[in-house]
Design a protein around this nucleic acid. Sequence first.
DNA 1: TCATAAACTGACCACTGGTTATTTTTCATT
DNA 2: AATGAAAAATAACCAGTGGTCAGTTTATGA
Lengths: 214, 214
Amino acid sequence: MGTQERKERERDERRNTIVDAAEAIILIKGFEGTTMEEIAEAAELSKGTLYLYFRSKEELFLEVNLRGLRLLSENLSAVVRDEATAAENALELGKAYIHFSREHAGYFKIIMTCQSAGQERTDHLRKSLLFEPGSPLLVFLNVIEKGRLDGTIRHDIPAVELALVLWSQMTGVLQFVHHRPGIFEMFQLDENSVLQNLFYVLQDGIIRNKTLSF
Amino acid sequence: MGTQERKERERDERRNTIVDAAEAIILIKGFEGTTMEEIAEAAELSKGTLYLYFRSKEELFLEVNLRGLRLLSENLSAVVRDEATAAENALELGKAYIHFSREHAGYFKIIMTCQSAGQERTDHLRKSLLFEPGSPLLVFLNVIEKGRLDGTIRHDIPAVELALVLWSQMTGVLQFVHHRPGIFEMFQLDENSVLQNLFYVLQDGIIRNKTLSF
DNA sequence: TCATAAACTGACCACTGGTTATTTTTCATT
DNA sequence: AATGAAAAATAACCAGTGGTCAGTTTATGA
């Protein structure tokens, strides 16, 4: 009898509805502003029940974070074209990352917040976030490695390290841009211009056989 | 009578002792793990008194953050040498930033955490953090602008934007490196190697008249 | 039908940031 | 030195939070 399997499936579904509820509220109220009680209410459960499925608030929130990362990965993968050069793909990845940070600002914020802060208990969970199959970083890495074959991306740096540097550089800039809109007014800067210049800096840093001319 | 002045001075001093206490505890227990009660105890005051000097926990913590930023600025400024080229100084700034993130890991963490998260009430405070005279970003900007005069740094990008991009790139990478030590084991990476390669990427991106050769 | 286990609840706890009525201290004025 | 008003400091208090758990309900299989 498949009762066992059904039970497991039902449990997964329930777990999912909890994450659904959490997601919806967090995207509106943010990480800190969301309470377990609210989530329980939205999921039509009691608070205690949440703790049957997640050991802590943070663990539940990491699940939402994971969804955000998956969505980001999909968005990134979607712009990679086999017929393009690796360098071109890298550029598109950058654009897609920017696009994501704008179109899914809520998720982006969650991903960024989650990158900092944290307890030891969930350390292993967070660690795996960026490196599970299909994670954003691996999408980058994949393109970088392709760049070794078609020769359009520098290869004097180990691919993993280059991917890691690129990823965190992009993340750093986007984090800055997103979290401090006031700064742009202050210096009368244009956000698009800054990002464009980020690409100039990155490109001249990673594209092979390019003679700089000013 | 200088009673008024003395009172103000005493008030400032007391305010300072509170920040001292907060700083000491936060550096050990981190942002979230520190309670107002603890701080009050360490400052030999009652919790209520803290609220006579700071409107909220966050405001007090921003004060600590400000100290961290000032310390960072000092560390950065210290490595800038007038007789060196701007490009050389930029490199040294990068190294100094890395050094700071290691030697003052506690402060670095506070600065990073504070960059995210936050209430509206303290928005203006946080905004001013990075742009007050002598802020880290301005140290970078200063060197970049020098690079226009001695011609060692690319000048096709507005100095402010280049400084901003560089700063947030560095920050992004350092944030990544610091907050995920486990990742380096996972990929058998060397932290120093990654940072070295970050410099390669940055250098080839910003140094003028450099023909890339692989 | 009944007994076992799993799911679920809601009252409860400890703790936290923040408030405020009250007390203590300070100090110019008499 | 006495006094009284203002400033400083306190300690009890509040509301809200994450998390727990004894007890209840529900599902299951014999």
